[in-house]
Amino acid sequence: MTQSVSHGEDYQPVFDGKIMDELQTVLQRYPTKQAALLPTLWIAQREHGWISDRIMAEVAEVLGLTPAYVKGVVTFYTMYHQHPVGKNFVQVCTTSPCNICGAEAVMKALLEQTGAQDAGATSADGKWTIVEVECLGACGFATPVLVNDDFLESVTPEKVPEIVKKYR
């Protein structure tokens, strides 16, 4: 990673060493550098936890794009975090099919028992961010809940204490 662009003195570039090698293999899959933007942002989020303005600038630089362009893409998609989130990022489906099966009660139980209190907010201990999301594509297993990368099926308010205990 070139140090020529100023991201700020304390900035540790994400795309360096092994991660840069990983990026090179990603680039080989596409005929343009721009096409690697989504996977590159995924790598950045995996490494840094969220996509800050400085990360967007670094991603723009490695892919030959402008920071404004990268921001335009980041803000289009819902899964790139534009703010730091809790250690456990929990997505609860509340679209119609899950709603009629009681998704709102699951959401309520999660907010109460994790101390996150409000959808999108992070609990005071920094461990939980709970968000309502649109259809997770598992409507027959209402209510699906995604805890980080773990896809949980058929979650009911009764199962919430167990989930909270497991990931706490």
Binding site: Y30, T32, Q34, A35, A36, L37, L38, L41, W42, L63, L65, V73, F76, Y77, T78, M79, Y80, V133, E134, C135
Partner: peptide, 19 residues
């Protein structure tokens, strides 16, 4: 993908692959 229902529309999906 990165969270966008519309990317299931064929040309939106192509744009999404193109970054």
């Amino acid at each position: 993908g990165a969270g966008a229902y519309i990317c299931g529309e064929e040309t939106a999906l192509m744009n999404s692959i193109e970054g």
